[in-house]
Design a protein around this nucleic acid. Structure first.
Length: 323
DNA sequence: TCCTCCCTGTTC
DNA sequence: GAACAGGGAGGA
């Protein structure tokens, strides 16, 4: 389940495969995988992928529409494609001959301008810890989800999503502004100050875990990092947010930032589906203190970890170490 | 502020 | 064959 560290990892690993590429064709294969506010994906033909970024759990492709085929889109400033991977979304590039799989929701055919080929190789090599050349997988690799081929030139970007919870939204800034999820998205936890974090908690009667999961308060925190940071901070996930002392709030924000940064350094956590854009799994799941460890001994005190439902989510915590 | 639904593969 | 995983929308 991609949360902030996983989406950050995907952005970093996808960048060398798609940045600078021109979208020659874009198809939506499942209507509900596109947000109703979105421009038709076909309008993106001729756009160049200028940047690959992230905001909260959203993956953002910044598009250069100078040469867009569609007249309504051509020349648009700040044209963007947002991808929310939700539970099982995945973005990977493949050879141009690769057919969409049963769970492929969108297909983007990409071409690499001749001037870009050398640059792409350099970009790919610049990403530490991953293969150093442009990789495009073939159909067989798609099924395996591993062992990418080395390939240059045209490629396809697939948005695969087994559970079809994910969605794409292509639009100009005014379209994004009409998307409540976007316009109300809270601050990035990694750059949030203790003062502003404390401000956002005051007066909140709901459980601290519910507050951490609320994307209007913090962008990018999901179930894994909420549980892990609350354990690291020694705070009971069911406690009312407003009841935390200022010291506890500061401790929690620091714990959350440490956990997120550590996970990013390990290329995220892989539970079942998650893979980065190179098809590699993350490693942070091996570091989990509580998530998915209900009933197992607490790594601090050895008592069995408790399981509960908080904010409608499965929650694991230590009744001894978290108060 | 909390609950239900969406969706499908995996596990029990 | 039911329970479970869960982010976010929408309704109670």
């Amino acid at each position: 389940m991609p949360e902030l560290p996983e989406v950050e990892t995907i952005a970093r690993t996808l960048r060398p495969h798609v940045q600078g590429c021109v979208i020659t064709n874009a198809q939506l294969l499942r209507a509900t995988s596109q947000h109703p506010l979105s421009l038709p994906l076909e309008h993106l033909r001729g756009c160049r992928i200028a940047e690959v970024g992230r905001r909260g759990k959203l993956l953002l492709l910044q598009l250069d529409a100078s040469n867009a085929e569609n007249a309504a889109v051509r020349g648009c400033k700040d044209l963007r494609l947002a991808v929310h991977l939700r539970m099982t979304g995945r973005l990977m590039t493949y050879t141009p001959q690769t057919a969409p799989g049963p769970h492929t929701r969108c297909v983007f055919d990409l071409d690499v301008p001749a001037s870009q080929v050398g640059t792409q190789k350099e970009n790919a090599g610049a990403h530490a810890g991953h293969a150093s050349t442009v990789q495009v997988k073939d159909a067989e690799d798609q099924l395996k989800g591993t062992a990418p081929d080395i390939h240059e030139g045209p490629r396809r970007l697939f948005f695969d999503d087994v559970r079809a919870f994910g969605l794409v939204l292509a639009g100009t800034p005014d379209i994004f502004d009409r998307w409540p999820f976007w316009s109300e998205l809270g601050p990035e936890p990694l750059t949030l100050t203790p003062k502003n974090f404390a401000k956002s908690l005051t007066g909140r009667k709901s459980a601290i875990k519910a507050v951490l999961l609320d994307q209007k308060i913090l962008a990018g925190v999901g179930n894994i990092y909420a549980d892990e940071s609350l354990f690291a901070a020694g705070i009971d996930p069911r406690r009312k947010a407003a009841d935390l002392t200022r010291v506890q709030m500061d401790t929690l924000l620091k714990a959350l930032q440490d956990v997120l940064l550590l996970s990013i350094s390990q290329c995220g956590s892989s539970i079942r589906d998650y893979k980065d854009a190179d098809g590699n799994a993350g490693a942070f799941q091996n570091t989990f203190a509580v998530y998915g460890r209900g009933g197992q001994p607490c790594k601090k005190c050895g008592r069995p970890l408790e399981k509960a439902r908080v904010a409608g989510r499965g929650t694991v915590y230590c009744s001894q170490c978290q108060r």
